[in-house]
Design a protein around this nucleic acid. Structure first.
Lengths: 153, 153
DNA sequence: AAATAACCTACCCTGCTGGTAGGATTTAGC
DNA sequence: GCTAAATCCTACCAGCAGGGTAGGTTATTT
């Protein structure tokens, strides 16, 4: 598998928040129940999103989480990067200190690093597909075929 | 990381074979030495390529491996797929029996599966970038800046 | 026959993933 | 102020896949 369940859970969490009216906190418990995910584990997942300043939080009773920005302005590359760390197709692509992505292969006796060419293209393909998808699109998609909401949510 | 070292080693192995004149077997030992990889492990890697009919082999003294087809006709999607199995961004995308890629999420109470939309796009991005890269390109790239070959290799 | 090299299978160690446990802090409502 | 609801934090743990080793068997050339 390419992405771990952190990405899956985190994206579902973001979509769930996107479905709520903004500025109104949603508790993790509500999301855990709605999606059938373990609450304690979701806490760790949402912590990454908070550190990346994609969501904001309020503590205490009636606290919860909400999107830090409108869903239209949140690219899924930001979300996945926050959840999974740098998007690198291969070990040698990650520089531990800076989290920047590069290739640490030795010059390979003067030859060009052929695999680097391949992994760079793959990485580009992934990042492009993530960048061109906004959270708002996913939220919209998740509403398809839903009954028209009535009085109470 | 997205791909395991099997993919890295396997691609390097394929590039190495592509650099040799075809129909002349190259021993794994030669490749292991050239790339600095463990021979016993390479055996497992090359077994996958053989099963996918990307390389052919001859046993016994002066045996070895060679490309089953010209490098121009080998897409890197085939290579990576042989090494890593089905390219699926997420667990739910793989159907164990058929190895076909799909999404097994429950209908989710009538809602569209929003994450599926995202992972499908990512998968598309990956596969497209792999398909549009041939082994011949990587072989060519690996020759850049090499000294013009003289009499003995 | 001896050397070479593919082929096969069982095993092992390490680190990461997914998850639990248990608490501490903060805030709203009474 | 008390209590409940919630975020926040850290340590821990079991399972499993990744990366690799070991030790052979078979086939082919010289």
């Amino acid at each position: 598998m390419i992405f771990s369940s952190k990405a899956e859970y985190g994206v579902r969490l973001m979509v769930e928040l996107g479905r709520q009216s903004p500025e109104q906190p949603t508790s993790l418990k509500a999301i855990a129940d709605a999606e059938g995910l373990p609450l304690a584990y979701l806490e760790q997942v949402v912590a990454r999103l908070r550190k990346a300043e994609l969501v904001m939080s309020a503590r205490g009773a009636h606290g919860g989480y909400w999107l830090a920005r409108p869903a239209e302005e949140i690219g899924m590359d930001e979300v996945v990067q926050a959840l999974e760390g740098a998007i690198a197709p291969m070990e040698c692509f990650v520089h531990e200190q800076t989290e920047r992505v590069l290739c640490s292969h030795l010059p390979d006796a003067g030859r060009g690093c052929a695999t680097k060419l391949l992994w760079t293209r793959v990485q580009g393909g992934i990042i492009r597909s993530l960048q061109t998808t906004t959270l708002a699109e996913l939220v919209e998609f998740s509403r398809r075929g839903e009954p028209v909401p009535t009085a109470a949510a």
